[in-house]
Amino acid sequence: MRPVNAKTGKAYGSALGYGIFHLAIRLGGVRLAYALLYLVLPYYLLIRPSVLRVQMPYLRRRFPGLGRWALERKAARHLVSFAKVLIDQAAAGVLGPESLKPDFPGQQAFYQLAAQPRGLVLLTSHVGAWLPAMATLDRMPKPVHLMMDREFLGGGHFFELAGIADRFRFISPRGPMGGVVQALQALQQGGCVSAMGDRQLGQGRELSQAFLGDEAAFPASPFYLASAGDAGMAMLLAHRSGPLQVAIEFHALDEGLDLTALRREEAAKALLERYAACLEGFTARHPEAWYNFYDFWGQGAPPAD
């Protein structure tokens, strides 16, 4: 995944740039790639300031009291944080997924939850190190269906390079009915469906929810699917805690909720409220780990990934 300009839809960085980072990882490991990052950074800070501007809608809400220069410093740190996640992902592709060191204290409880006979909607978000975290889930007791176009990964994506992509079954959000009927089928057969909770992929209904002080639009389908499929819902969050280190946490969003007693809309809204609260808590603990590089609350159309 490369950061994408929401207006142009173009990815920041070039294939050559990514090739250079891959070569650096092969020659000197991630530390050489991190060093290279600091050489490249001034280009983005000085020549491509738009890469900072796209972070402002988030940073202004996360740090409401800060002035312009302080926010720009935050934005630079934000960019470095994202780039390091990308470098770690690339390293997982080049060096193998076993190079990632997961720290997942709740792992056993998570696998127990996933092992329950009923289906599970597993929400991820464009924050932290969610893709490296998914790569470390090598003992899932049931099939995991990713609501994502496999074509989006492309041959150079670390999931493909590291052979991780074959662990998953892909449901295209651009398929018939946005893939939701296929996802419902997977859930009703006890499978796990993993979807992004914070961004609409393809077209679909949205739900409004307060997030960091303002209303934002969230995709409705994952939350409806959990209710319609009589499935559980969990949320996976991860942040990069060091070189190739991923700290993972999960939250059982339906815990204590009797979804069958609620109308579909009510159930979806109750799950979304919990999801948004967990996401907000995560951004408070890891403010640099928010990677929705567009105006999440406003007019900017999200990038296609």
């Binding site: 939701v180 009927v181 419902l184 319609a228």
Partner: peptide, 21 residues
Amino acid sequence: DSLDAVEVVVLLQKNYGIEVK
């Protein structure tokens, strides 16, 4: 829309016993 499709599937299951598969 697609979420209505989900409801239709659930209704067909409930009212006609048709499996989603």
